[in-house]
């Protein structure tokens, strides 16, 4: 699954504090085109904040954020919007628009940011709903969907605009193992089908194992380790081990 050498996301010495709470102390990360980088870390360590820095929802206090060659913090609003059209952001909760049906949710960015005709939009909606296996939910309201379905519709809405970069904020948290595998395979397929570059924030080792080209471990506001799944599995670092130990114990319990 290795990507080309073109680097699409560069974070260099990024710092961010909220009040006195220093979340990101010194973050540096590079993502190549077509590469999937998984970010592991405890809750509240700033994994989501890192993603929000990349889309310009959070402006870092210091450091460089470059996406597709553009320096995000220095862009005007319109320039930022142009870059955002190429980035897909999957929210942890799905963030579906409550007052709109599934169809209207997926239509929302398509109508505004693409030149597609009405019939092309409809076939695109059908296509992305098939990708997430929820074609029958097209006319439902978000309130009628389960948590996992909402998440998948959120994914469908995001991939509908064919982004070059996908940012996944805990795509599989709270889902059953089967759906976790489905979503993880979807991330891999997106990468294969469209050559999408992704950053996946997760604690879920099943998902990490399936999707990761590289894993970056966020600990205490910095990326302490970077490597492939297999490399990190053999790591001596106590913090890194704790993720794999948890995963292995679950697997052992399942086997027993």
């Amino acid at each position: 699954m290795a990507g080309s050498s073109e680097i699409v996301i560069v974070l260099e010495h990024v710092k961010k504090s909220f009040g006195k709470n220093e979340i990101l102390k010194d973050i540096s990360l590079r993502v190549k085109k077509g590469e999937t980088v998984v970010t592991l870390g405890k809750s509240g360590t700033g994994k989501s904040v890192t993603l929000k820095c990349i889309v310009g929802l959070v402006i870092p206090d210091a450091g460089k954020v470059r996406v597709l060659g553009k320096d995000i913090p220095s862009l005007t609003y319109n320039e930022l919007q142009d870059i955002r059209k190429k980035i897909g952001f999957v929210f942890q909760s799905g963030a579906l628009y409550d007052s709109m049906s599934v169809r209207q949710n997926i239509e929302f960015p398509l109508v505004r940011n693409s030149d597609l005709s009405k019939s092309e939009i409809n076939s695109r909606i059908e296509e992305v709903l098939n990708d997430v296996g929820l074609a029958e939910a097209v006319d439902k309201m978000p309130s009628e969907l389960s948590g996992g379905m909402r998440k998948r519709i959120g994914v469908a809405r995001t991939i509908s605009v064919n982004p070059e970069i996908m940012l996944w904020d805990e795509p599989t948290t709270g889902l059953d193992p089967e759906t976790t595998r489905d979503i993880s395979n979807l991330i891999v397929n997106m990468q294969k089908k469209y050559g999408v570059s992704s950053i996946v924030v997760t604690h879920d080792m099943i998902c990490a194992k399936i999707v990761a080209d590289k894993i970056a471990v966020l600990h205490d506001g910095i990326y302490s380790k970077l490597g492939t799944f297999d490399e990190l599995e053999k790591s001596d670092d106590e913090f890194v081990k704790s993720f794999f130990v948890a995963e292995n114990s679950v697997q052992n319990e399942v086997k027993n």
């Binding site: 929802l57 919007q81 955002r84 952001f89 409550d98 929302f108």
Partner: peptide
């Protein structure tokens, strides 16, 4: 909408 990140979702989808 703000609390459930719907406004952020519109923002990042360039709408």
């Amino acid at each position: 909408m703000k609390v459930t990140e719907q406004i952020d979702a519109m923002e990042v989808s360039a709408c």
